[in-house]
Design a binder for these strands. Structure first.
Ligand SMILES: [Mn+2]
Ligand SMILES: [Mn+2]
Ligand SMILES: [Mn+2]
Ligand SMILES: [Mn+2]
Lengths: 223, 223
DNA sequence: CAAAAAATTTAGGCCAGACTAAAATATTTT
DNA sequence: AAAATATTTTAGTCTGGCCTAAATTTTTTG
């Protein structure tokens, strides 16, 4: 009956999920770029996923693709693996948060449900990964993230860092160095109309820091 | 130049290594049985591995196959991964020694050299896995195992368990229960000519245990 | 030592998942 | 609203890794 969900398919579903998150449906080209695959190949796979029994995606020619309930469950399974693995690699094997992504990218497809459960237990059932990203629950629902970009704060506002974008290792190293990490408490000292720079104070640090929008749009905070 | 060593190839090389260990060259049929693949498919792969640049196996039609130096290095790399992973799963995630094999079987192909190094360090650079099997060194040489079957001991001989065969989970559970585990000290109390049974005493235990050859041939000891 | 049995190889095919080139459709610009 | 451009799909191809059936070679046995 139900199709085998290969490693390739898992990667497609995961990236469709992430593209769907930032609004609307995932385009063939965006997927191709993320997966590092020719657009023609993506079209072929989307047709296959849409015709699978049960269908994993909803796909109309030239109109992008979204996940079905089944597709979403499969995606969340992989994302849960990925984020638990990142947490495990950092906590247990001393990886730094800019190194874990690539390793988790491969392991996520291979670990058993038993491995997943043992990791979760060993880590005390964490709700966020090292970058602050929410970990889907064991019954595969995605908790709601209330955070918004640091860039949206203005003078005198105070907030806690919840999560940072994890796709640029260099940015991650920089953020760690300056102390912009999950749970850090931030107060905005001033905002520049012209370039969008924010001057911030991090609780427990001596001096202020000035951050451009290239940084403040990648950091997400909650009041 | 040098061929990509896929997961499939890694499995072929690993099993060829193990068959070569128990004397001579690996036969097509034995490999097929171990890999759960049709013999015809094995032939195809062996031809490919023999014609690879550099060659990974030495293969003459109808005469079985052995590893080249290159093939052996690749095999030892996978075996090192496997045995470190088994040790890690037992020590860090609380797996029991009869559960680890299947999980390690998949992970061995996927972890990075960095992961390998971090595991080895975290475990204190172990030399044997939970079943007592020797772990290839970081420079990919296999230490020499001096142990011999428990079945070869006779009355009044004393020895230490070094390793047990890991391919039957039920046997592993039984061995754990009766205390026949690596480092256990054994004295042979008597030997039965007829059925080959050994009556043994394990240091620290009250009562003697009688073991048949089905067991004593799977347990390896050293004086 | 010839016949039967077992082991192995050859031949031909299939499927997943990629690719390129060309065609079709959608979007943007003028 | 037509032309130019960008996006997406179709068509055809390739490779890895497996399969079955049939042919060949090796080994065992009467
Ligand atoms: Mn992946
Ligand atoms: Mn992450
Ligand atoms: Mn394997
Ligand atoms: Mn083992």
């Amino acid at each position: 009956m139900s199709e085998v969900i290969t490693q390739s398919i898992q990667d497609y579903l995961k990236h469709i999920y992430e593209l769907n998150e930032n609004g609307g449906s995932a385009s063939t080209n965006d997927l191709a770029a993320r997966l590092n695959i020719a657009p023609a190949s993506v079209t072929g796979m989307l047709q296959k996923l849409a015709n699978a029994k049960p269908p994993l995606v909803i796909y109309k020619k030239h109109q992008g693709v979204t996940l079905t309930k089944n597709g979403e469950k499969a995606a969340l399974e992989v994302i849960r693996h990925h984020r638990l693995l990142e947490t495990f690699l950092v906590n247990t094997l001393g990886y730094s948060w800019d190194e874990v992504h690539f390793e988790a990218e491969k392991l996520e497809h291979v670990i058993s449900e038993d491995f997943e459960a043992r990791m979760a237990a060993a880590l005390g059932h964490p709700t966020r990964d090292p970058h602050g990203e929410l970990i889907p629950t064991v019954d595969l629902t995605m908790p709601v993230d209330e955070s918004r970009p640091l860039a949206s704060l203005r003078t005198d506002e105070t907030a806690t860092v919840r999560r940072v974008s994890d796709d640029d290792p260099a940015l991650l190293r920089h953020l760690l160095e300056i102390g912009v990490v999950p749970e850090a408490k931030i107060t905005v000292k001033s905002y520049s109309e012209f370039d969008g720079n924010l001057t911030i104070k991090i609780e427990g640090q001596k001096s202020n820091i000035v951050l451009g929008t290239a940084v403040t749009n990648q950091v997400f905070v909650e009041k």
